[in-house]
Design a binder for these strands. Structure first.
Lengths: 151, 151
DNA sequence: ATTATTATTGAAAACGATTTTCATGTTCTT
DNA sequence: AAGAACATGAAAATCGTTTTCAATAATAAT
């Protein structure tokens, strides 16, 4: 089975695009990154080892990674997009804590099954889906007052 | 039971805000509008009868309507936010056709139940949720080729 | 009613995230 | 090595949305 990096290279070749220093660096950093990284965040990481790489190129490469199926773009309530490596495990959904901003992942086969059924009833062909639960996480439920805000 | 307009008025009064010509006009147009209207779209509608009202005021009023609980803000894959009247019926979810851009609504109590269960397992308190199915609608499935794109 | 107070408005400017433009640099093919 | 095609970074452009600010309108106090 192909690693994310290989899949990406293959995609580039297939599209007649070029494998460059910066694309390789960005892809590698992205794939070894934690989940839900932002373009700006990824740029910060990449810059550590490779200060010459511009934010613009990170944006462009993230888009390519998404097209290659290696990255998934997510847009939670906020203004900016997050990307996550698509490889690991199957599909999963998210719980977002409105207090601390943390994002929790979960997976539920039964829900997916029901989605399929609903879609079928409407003659709708599902290609992708997004389920997000917004609320308060366990940790933050214990802290009563005005509480901390993220960032 | 209070109409959306009444709820909005009440909210304004409660907050020490003022009832103005433009707020009334915008709220009325919004409430009588079709679902999933965009700030720009609403402005276009309002402008028809009231050309002097600025887009800025529409943005501001939509925010107030949301705070009053009369409007719900949604952000589907795209770049711009949609608003929909919150009043009619309970919560519902969306199927978005990637070909024609149409948005279909559905409701499924079983899914909501499962969501609650998952959340409970994680000690998470759900305040809101969002379920979106992306794919191809019945109509577009019949049209094979490159097909039409929205807008 | 009139005035005083405070909120609201529209236009233009500011904003943040993302994209495009463009001149220059790099990769890949032969 | 040479040429063609693509990629890069910086700055400028875009898009949706928010803020600023001077002028105006709504409500409260007189």
């Amino acid at each position: 089975m192909a690693s994310g990096e290989e899949t990406f290279q293959a995609y580039l070749r297939r599209q007649g695009l070029k494998t460059t220093r910066q694309r390789t660096a960005i892809a590698r950093e992205f794939l070894s990154s934690h989940r839900h990284i932002t373009a700006e965040g990824l740029h910060r990481s990449v810059s550590r080892k490779n200060p010459a790489i511009g934010l613009v190129t990170v944006y462009r490469t993230l888009k390519l990674l998404a097209q290659a199926g290696v990255a998934k773009e997510r847009r939670f309530g906020a203004n900016e997009s997050c990307y996550e490596p698509a490889a690991a495990g199957g599909h999963h959904d998210h719980m977002i804590c409105k207090i601390c901003g943390k994002i929790f992942e979960f997976e539920n086969v039964k829900i997916e099954g029901l989605q399929d059924r609903v879609a079928a009833e409407h003659g709708f062909l599902i290609q992708d889906h997004k389920l997000e639960l917004y609320g308060v996480c366990r940790g933050c439920r214990k802290v009563k007052p005005g509480a901390r805000r993220r960032k």
